[in-house]
Simulated assay, not measured.
Amino acid sequence: MSRTIVVTGGTNGLGMALARHYAERGDQVVAVGSSEEGGRRLREVVPMAQFVQSDLSSLRQTRDLVERLSDEHPVVDALVLAAFRFNPVRVETDEGIEHTFALYVLNRWLMADGLRGSLESAAAPVIINLCGAGQGGRIRWDDLQLKDRYRAIAATMQGAKAGELLGAAYASERTKYVLYNPVFVATGLHEPFGQPLRALVRMASVVFAQPVAKAVPPIAALIDHPPAEALTAWKKGKIIDLAVDRNEARRFEEAIRPMAQSASS
């Protein structure tokens, strides 16, 4: 039976590989990307998938996207949150939100929360949040958008920790929430950097990164057979223990909710 799989960041890297995997199996795949160029690339590689263009760092566009997907797909079997961009320097969106925080945190919260009804209507719904689970990131409570001192690694690690908290805060009796850390995958990580660092990162990717094709099967296994537990964390296909403070998770959700809603209204 055909299922509906929604993949954000579905026009590049691991997201597109997952889109291709499920489209070739005959499932209905909705791949979301920010550019028409990405859409053309998707249509060349995965012509069976549906492309939806949306700037996922824009909270207004994310809200419009959620409304569209909810209307067009009243049943969503899996939501894969894969959109990410490494920002070497601090960048703000048109809505005045630090880009990493907007894309890696607020967008993922809005997508999961907004598609809750469609997910709950599926037989075995699951959310796959591709993130840096278990890497020891921390929340900068006094400066969530890193206005005072921006460091790209700090922004990325905070996003990874935020993913853990969002997973813990997502209360659902049916939809399973999976935090999945693919670690180092060859998905063009070098592209945001300037030379000579770009060349060095690209070389490291060639030597050390896991091929995309190898990273897909363990993630697909979790989509096809969601875990029994409400929240689980995985690293390269192996389950990991992850102690998340539920009070901290609720506190974080309460902190970002008004930020996301005011910027999206």
Rank of each mutant, 00 (worst) to 15 (best):
I240Q: 06
D71R: 14
R68Y: 07
A102R: 00
V244K: 00
H190W: 14
Q145I: 03
E164T: 11
L65E: 07
K238T: 12
L14G: 07
I5T: 05
T187W: 05
Q28D: 13
R90M: 10
Q261Y: 15
P226Y: 04
G136K: 04
V244A: 07
I127P: 00
R40I: 11
E44Q: 12
L69H: 00
R257G: 09
G26L: 05
L242N: 07
M157F: 09
A233H: 00
R202L: 11
N107P: 02
V52R: 09
V178P: 01
V212Y: 01
I240H: 00
G167W: 01
N247A: 13
S54I: 11
V32R: 04
E92N: 13
H21M: 01
E253A: 13
V244N: 06
V216K: 11
V91D: 13
F184W: 11
F193C: 00
E164H: 06
E95W: 08
R151F: 15
L165D: 00
T4W: 03
V105K: 03
E120A: 05
S121R: 14
Q135V: 13
Q145L: 03
T11M: 10
P196S: 05
A102G: 03
K176R: 15
E37I: 14
K236T: 14
L166S: 01
A83L: 05
V7Y: 08
S205F: 01
N247R: 12
P125H: 08
L166D: 04
K238C: 11
R108E: 07
G39C: 04
A133E: 11
A78W: 01
K214R: 15
G163W: 03
Q50W: 09
M259Y: 12
M16C: 13
G26S: 03
G137E: 03
L115Y: 04
G96K: 08
D224T: 02
E44G: 13
E173N: 12
V45E: 06
M259G: 10
T100F: 06
M1A: 12
R174H: 07
V216T: 04
R25N: 07
G15M: 00
A23E: 09
E120N: 04
I240E: 00
G26Y: 09
V185T: 02
T62E: 07
V185M: 02
L242E: 04
V207W: 04
L189T: 07
S70C: 02
E253V: 11
I223Q: 07
V46C: 08
V178C: 05
N12Q: 14
M259F: 09
A19G: 06
A23P: 10
L130D: 08
P218H: 06
N87D: 14
E191I: 15
F208I: 10
D77M: 07
G132R: 01
G10R: 02
N247P: 08
P74A: 10
Y22I: 11
L146P: 09
H73V: 06
Q53C: 12
A186Y: 05
A169D: 09
A122S: 08
V80L: 12
Y22V: 07
L231K: 00
E248F: 02
V30H: 03
R140G: 14
K147L: 15
P182V: 05
L119I: 00
